[in-house]
Design a protein around this nucleic acid. Sequence first.
DNA 1: ATGTGTTCCTGTCCGC
DNA 2: TGCGGACAGGAACACA
Length: 283
Amino acid sequence: MPELPEVETVRRGLEPVMTGRRIARAEVRRPDLRWPLPERMAERLTGAQVQGLRRRSKYILADLSTGETLLIHLGMSGRMLISGQMLGEFHHDHPAPARHDHIVLEMEGGARVTFNDARRFGMMDLLPTAAAEAHPLLAALGPEPFGNAFSEPYLVARLKGRNTPVKAALLDQAVVAGLGNIYVCEVLYRAGIDPRRKAGRIAADRVAALVPLIRQVLAEAIEAGGSSLKDYRQADGELGYFQHAFRAYDREGAPCLTPGCPGTIRRIVQSGRSTWFCPACQR
DNA sequence: ATGTGTTCCTGTCCGC
DNA sequence: TGCGGACAGGAACACA
């Protein structure tokens, strides 16, 4: 499901029910997601107070009073559902466990957080907070797009000499952390760059222009609460609405929205994944 | 080292 | 309606 804006939206949704609260009871309803869950996960979570919720790339990190950090990745279809808490004007009662409800966290105070993941490409792990950044899944990640380390000179240097299509390069989490298929398509569309171009053969000023565009697209998407495709929802059950702002993604056959451009959005497949772009104005 | 294709899993949608 | 195939927000892994 989720790219950086959706994960950030989920993190923000979880904050009021989790941060500062104790996990009264944890239930692990199956032993594995993408990989086996950590040993004795339910016991290690039970009684722990959540001291903070962080995000790194598409991961959520819950720092616990036990000195451990719960690392969460939602994969393609993972969701964090909140129930039993006053949310806006509505009171949500606890629903009966549903298909693919794999992990249930009952928070002190009555809220319940349920991790549901039909495809089970998601993951969870428990690691010492002090060594969280050294976790194999986090160690190789590139810079956060909103951080100072993600700069125009950085991106120009990072793409220099790369022979892979720029679409694939921006999907590479070691180049920049958090972009996925939707937002790469949207960024390249706004940049007017053909996704098939080799990353190392694009003029430096055009590569540099990607940096503020990446931040802009991600910031707009976070502002909109992410993109709701299929049944993705924010943790509080609200739908994100950035999907209405897509200019390229999933618009095959639709007219290009660039003023004056006569083009039609086309879908191609690159390294096994769909790319949508305008062949007329993306060069 | 880079680049590419395959794989994990379930659900949904579309054409016949 | 049923059935088969394509496709889906990710990314580790194996191999050229």
